[in-house]
Design a protein around this nucleic acid. Structure first.
Lengths: 117, 117
DNA sequence: CGCATAACTTATACATTGTATACTATATAT
DNA sequence: ATATATAGTATACAATGTATAAGTTATGCG
């Protein structure tokens, strides 16, 4: 067996955030990302946690951000839009495929009609 | 949006370890688990890291261990066998299904012939 | 006007999980 | 008897996850 891991792994919440951004057409701001994770990921999120991880993903070059204009809505501070970079897409693909590969054949699906394809 | 997360999440390495134990017919010792993660998970492992996480999983009640007899092989200290508990199986199912649900339709598969079913 | 309120983001702190190095224990081969 | 292989433990530190509180900007409404 080898000694060290050459791949840089994503944590689970990092994966979910990257997947959520891709789901929202890859130009997503905080509350869209949170809503998407809640809807598809079946778990709650916390804005503080979310933005913390987003800024770490940006430091690692897996997402980029761009500040837009303020909304016309009451409140409406300028939104920060996030996109997954090429490196981010590769990273999330590898993570998802690793889990799938390990899961294959183990009959773990809760929704038996589900398939990733 | 809600404020806190009621589900206890698994980390990615925890997931891989649980999946590896299930793969090895659910009575697995350290080096089998490591080998399985290397083979299916496409990444290296480190024994120190592995045993640390195994003992945390045991503390959380997601695996149980049992010490067997020493091997007849050169060396062969008594092996510690791990099994995934019911709670462990539920936890890993939820984690895997969350990732799948978030990934569905995003065309992230590297091996296009792969499906979890 | 000006102040309460809503939408969004940032700062900060701490808990949990991931990883590596070094060490202990046991048995076999030479 | 002692070097070596197998298997696991102890420990320390880095990376990731999470929550609370605070800051920024605009709108609505008295």
């Amino acid at each position: 067996m080898s000694i060290s891991n050459p791949n840089k792994n994503l944590g689970e919440f990092e994966q979910l955030i990257l997947l959520a951004i891709l789901r929202v057409n890859n130009k997503s701001h905080g509350s869209e990302i949170a809503d998407t994770i809640e809807q598809y990921g079946n778990r709650n999120t916390n804005f503080g946690a979310l933005y913390t991880v987003l800024s770490r993903l940006e430091q690692k070059g897996l997402v980029v951000s761009e500040v837009g204009e303020a909304t016309a809505k009451r409140g409406g501070r300028a939104k920060k839009y996030f996109k997954v970079t090429g490196a981010g897409e590769i990273a999330v693909k590898q993570s998802v495929n690793t889990i799938l590969n390990m899961s294959k054949g183990l009959n773990l699906l809760l929704d038996k009609t589900m398939s990733i394809q």
